[in-house]
């Protein structure tokens, strides 16, 4: 099958590659760029393990062709930590509140929560639950994920306040 040339910015770095037109974004990220943080859990956009940020929106990269991401800005779990390499407040909160068990859904969950807190920096519990209702977790029962996101929102708010 003939291949096409794609270019995009992933986690702040320009990347390019050759891909079949039918190649999915998740496969390009995982196989070509070796970014294996986002996972494939269902292939049908229900589980959200493959969630990445595409031009400021959460997308399920298992149902996006790499061609659709040509020229886009993509952020994966590998790009969430602070620039100095320390964990982002969300990652810290997930650890502190036991918001993960097997860790397979975690990259998608955190990437989604990261976008959610930009859309709504001070969400209620119900808004958090609705905000992550495209992401399945089979281990935690979500309670500690919700707790983690709540704690991260508070932490980010107090950091913002301190900076102002």
């Amino acid at each position: 099958m003939s291949k096409m040339h794609v270019k995009m910015t992933v986690n702040g770095k320009p990347v390019e590659g050759l891909a079949e037109p039918r190649t999915l974004l998740i496969h390009f990220l995982r196989e070509d760029l070796n970014l294996t943080g986002p996972h494939i859990g269902c292939d049908t956009s229900h589980c959200g393990a493959c969630t990445v940020d595409l031009d400021g929106k959460s997308v399920k990269s298992c149902t996006v062709f790499v061609a659709q991401a040509n020229g886009a800005e993509v952020t994966t779990i590998e790009g969430i930590a602070n620039p100095d390499g320390t964990l982002h407040a969300l990652q810290e909160a997930f650890r502190e509140h036991h918001g993960l068990q097997c860790g397979f859904c975690t990259p998608g969950m955190i990437t989604r929560a990261h976008r959610l807190l930009q859309e709504n920096p001070n969400p209620t519990e119900a808004e958090i639950r609705m905000g992550i209702s495209g992401n399945l977790c089979r281990c935690t029962g979500y309670q500690n994920i919700v707790k983690s996101i709540t704690a991260a929102a508070e932490q980010l708010a107090s950091m913002k306040e301190a900076a102002e």
């Binding site: 995982r30 070796n34 970014l35 294996t36 943080g37 986002p38 996972h39 494939i40 994966t76 779990i77 590998e78 969430i80 930590a81 964990l87 990652q91 997930f94 650890r95 502190e96 036991h98 993960l100 860790g103 397979f104 975690t106 990259p107 955190i110």
Partner: peptide
């Protein structure tokens, strides 16, 4: 006690079988 394994899993550095290249 917080989990030893978490830092790896939180940053996308887990190694599930599909990640073995």
């Amino acid at each position: 006690v917080q989990r030893n394994i978490d830092d790896r899993l939180l940053t996308g550095q887990g190694h599930y079988i599909d990640d073995i290249d």
